[in-house]
Design a protein around this nucleic acid. Structure first.
Length: 279
DNA sequence: AACAGCATCAACCGCGTTATG
DNA sequence: CCATAACGCGGTTGATGCTGT
């Protein structure tokens, strides 16, 4: 007996979320915490299935999420963890505070995979795609990768290089900086751990960044309010309903944007307001 | 300016796992 | 122990935006 797809129920909405739906879901979850997802849509007044609500919240609306491209460090961490864990995206995500499994999975499929292939590395096995040619024909023992291999950005090759030979003259990132955990001790690191270096440079845009670059620019400014959301707020349970309901109207006022994506701006605004109100 | 092809990512689908009666 | 329900995860899809011609 197969299970019925949860969203096939008549009247349930599918597809992109509207700002109004986001608002309802956030208000409800901030006010009541995460209980059983099955009940959430009903209680929050949404015509969605619980699964859809959970996904929307975990991948998009959670106040502790970071947005924007993965930093070089994060990318490197993902590569290393992927080598150890395979496609266990949620496990990988648990090492990168503020990042979701979906986000990492997408980033892997769209960016990292290509990068690795370009560098002649099999993204599945993390081993060289092209076996080293025999020394007999006079070629160099190092692996030779055709054509575009040359144009691989130095930073990328350095990043991957460092996964096998730690810290090979690369001052942007060194595996020593991100201690690898074993499967046995998968524990969420303190939120500030990786967050700090993410405020640096987005992976692809400012490729010239070094460890000393202060150039978060717009991204940094934009992310800051979100990253500073007190963890207690996110973890808030039913005990804190009063606090939330006090602030809820403030949040509601910041929902007036048209673009549904601006939920983040809304949350940032809410956060800002919340700091002012609750300080 | 218009079109086509490509890249990105939010959201969905379905399966495995866990919880509950 | 079994059946069922709910949750969580990973793979995939499709809408949208971007880039090149």
């Amino acid at each position: 007996m197969g299970r019925q797809p949860c969203c096939d129920k008549v009247g349930l909405k599918k597809g992109p979320w509207t700002a109004e739906e986001d608002q309802k879901l956030v208000s409800f979850l901030l006010g009541n915490g995460q209980c059983c997802w099955r009940a959430v849509p009903k209680l929050a007044g949404l015509l969605r299935c619980g699964k859809s609500c959970r996904l929307r919240w975990t991948n998009y609306l959670r106040p502790d999420l970071k947005r924007g491209l993965l930093s070089e460090t994060e990318e490197k961490t993902v590569i290393d963890l992927h080598e150890q864990l395979g496609n266990r995206w949620s496990k990988i995500a648990s090492h990168l505070p503020g990042r979701t499994d979906n986000e990492i999975k997408n980033h892997w499929n769209t960016h990292i995979k290509k990068k690795l292939r370009k560098m002649g590395i099999d993204p599945v096995t993390h081993k060289p795609l092209y076996p080293a040619p025999p020394l007999a024909d006079g070629g160099s023992p190092e692996q030779k990768v055709p054509e575009e291999e040359e144009e691989v950005e130095e930073k990328s090759s350095a990043a991957v290089e460092s996964s096998t030979s730690t810290c090979a003259g690369h001052d942007v990132f060194c595996t020593d900086e991100v201690p690898m955990l074993h499967l046995d001790d998968i524990v969420l690191p303190p939120p500030c751990d990786v967050v700090g270096d993410t405020a640096g440079s987005p992976a692809e845009s400012s490729s010239t960044s070094t460890s000393s670059s202060g150039g978060g620019g717009i991204d940094e400014e934009w992310l800051l309010p979100i990253m500073e959301w007190p963890e207690s707020m996110y973890l808030m349970g039913l005990d804190d309903v009063d606090m939330v309901t006090t602030a809820a109207p403030a949040m509601a006022t910041s929902w007036e944007f048209e673009d549904p994506f601006n939920a983040y701006q809304r949350i940032a605004l809410f956060d800002h307001h919340h700091e002012l109100t609750w300080a």
